[in-house]
Design a protein around this nucleic acid. Structure first.
Lengths: 338, 338
DNA sequence: TGATTGATTTCAAACGTTTGAAATGATGTA
DNA sequence: TACATCATTTCAAACGTTTGAAATCAATCA
């Protein structure tokens, strides 16, 4: 009752009057162990709720069975949804997941990688911060033979790596086409930070859709924001006010931004507010609560992205020695009309 | 280059031609170690980026330096914000945090506790599921001498435990009073699941505020929902339609519910929609995007709750042997007027 | 009978760290 | 010279597990 002896292999061995290794082998179903002993061992182990000590195990096999995940922000539904896919699969395979938030700051990201290195994670899944252009802190993993999966954000400066990404080009292409089919000829594109490569991928989808459908491109219908509210307002000002023919539709990099945009237009009593069609990336559950929800959402299926990322990572961890070509997995987007 | 030897104490010892224990003691600043040796050891360790193997360390000190957190859902901002406080402090003290989501299901919660037990976490912080009335799975921790902190949700059936909670009574009292001061005499209260004890605490705040301000209580102004949308609609139907004098103000258990409520009233063209004042618990960032935001929010400061929970937990972990009276920490709510 | 086989169990080293006890060796003291 | 003192270093066990090699013992075969 007072200080209880922990239930270890040694403890079981003493109780049964056999050696530690027999107990270990019995529990691990070694064929050389007598059926009867095996049964007795397993029975007692179950009775006493024996669970192997993870630290000892990890020390022995030289693995931590822990994987690190770095993402910008858990308040962002995209990333929160992605970890659902990660934890699901990781848990099923005996891996723990440690999540770190970089808040889109490079220094915080570097700190987290060091922390993970100290913790000897077996691998890393990362959505890089919007300021990550130098990959020294991440190359450390590669040098140690630890696999890294880049997911959710495209590290366009880093070519030799595994990636799991939304097919953001396709998503934006289809959204643009949808708006064109609906009759729009003046569609604005509000991109995210220029440091995030998705901003440019989506732009390509946008412009290709325009071209393929013989809609003239107008540079004054394109603007960018760094996610900052102030910055977004400025971009909207440029797109909707500082122009002779304002757009009749808007595609935004993120619904978060889209909401900022609409809010700004509304508070300025923009006359065309209700006749404009809005589409953003995200498909937040929250949308259904808006009086006038956007025309459509671009669903990026972040759960799948997390799922694919962890699957690839565990594969890499298991076959560390063999050569493995760099993968680039793209998950298609879907349009959801509200 | 090919298979690099890991940098261990042994490796450093060999390089320096001294014993492993000297290296260990030098790094840990034992006073018996010669200053010169200490310097040489530390220098080489830094050069070779030595980091002690966590598994070996943990095995030695019989701790995992890992704490488990169980919460219903990361999509819920309250809990997401709470982990901010937890990770912040835990990280600073060398602890890893593993997060598990119960999705408000008891079975999932039980599975998670078993997983954490297997992983030999040093302690647990949990926001119990709305269906948790039996605490056997959590008592296992107590029996093993592992501290458990109940946070965010009040386990009213479990008296002997540490709790860190929102002062939800006070929050609801003040919200009610605010509405009364604004002139409301018919204030409705929409509670959450009856299994969640906050539902009743808030009700007490509500009714005491009514009494203290000489506003008559009317039982037909009280309803409950289990968070399910359908269920909420039904409750709203009861409160606003199945009554001769509908309420002029509504306090909801959660802003999530409040949005469902407003949405329902709007889609039914409820005539008093715009003359009703709404208040909910939460203060979601999202609110600013609503055309007609609620009159006010009750901010519960979940970061503080997480922060207090982890602080208490680490305290308990460090002084495991001494007696420690059960704590009940209450964090006050604040009203935020929009 | 002595050797071989086979089934089963045990030994012992290893993983990387910590730490009290023991060893070393130089210096000072009687 | 012999011995105690002191600073410094090393030894060795321990944490709990895995696993190839060695040991045990009974049964079988020649």
């Amino acid at each position: 009752m007072s200080t209880k002896t922990p239930v270890t292999l040694k403890f079981l061995a003493q109780k049964l009057n056999i050696s530690i290794s027999t107990v270990s082998k019995a529990l691990n179903d070694y064929p050389t162990i007598n059926d009867d002993t095996r049964k007795r061992v397993k029975q007692l182990a179950a009775e006493l709720h024996f669970t192997p000590n993870k630290s000892a195990l990890n020390l022995q096999v030289q693995k931590s069975y822990t994987i690190g995940v770095i993402l910008p922000d858990l308040m962002d539904h995209y990333f929160t949804r992605s970890i659902f896919g990660i934890e699901q699969f990781a848990g099923k395979h005996g891996y723990n997941v440690i999540i770190g938030q970089s808040y889109d700051e490079l220094q915080k990201e570097i700190d987290l990688t060091n922390m993970f290195l100290k913790n000897r994670v077996d691998g890393l899944i990362i959505a890089i911060s919007k300021n990550t252009q130098n990959f020294d802190h991440l190359d450390k993993f590669k040098n140690l033979g630890l696999p890294v999966i880049y997911y959710g954000r495209n590290p366009s400066f880093n070519l030799s790596c595994h990636k799991v990404l939304s097919n953001t080009y396709q998503g934006c292409y289809q959204a643009t086409e949808l708006l064109i089919k609906k009759g729009h000829q003046r569609i604005a594109y509000l991109g995210g930070p220029k440091m995030i490569s998705f901003t440019h991928d989506r732009f390509k989808g946008y412009i290709n859709a325009l071209n393929d459908n013989q809609v003239p491109f107008d540079a004054s219908l394109v603007a960018y924001t760094n996610f900052d509210q102030q910055n977004t307002h400025q971009a909207i000002q440029t797109l909707f006010y500082d122009v002779t023919h304002p757009p009749t539709a808007l595609i935004a990099f993120k619904e978060q931004i889209l909401f900022d945009a609409i809010k700004y237009l509304r508070s300025n009593n923009y006359p065309g507010l209700d006749h404009t069609d809005y589409i953003g990336f995200g498909n937040m559950p929250f949308i259904s609560y808006l009086d006038k929800p956007p025309f459509a959402s671009i669903e990026e299926n972040p759960e799948s992205i997390g799922d694919q990322a962890i699957k690839l990572l565990l594969q890499l961890i298991d076959q560390k020695e063999t050569v493995f070509p760099y993968q680039k997995i793209m998950i298609d987007c879907e349009l959801v009309i509200h």
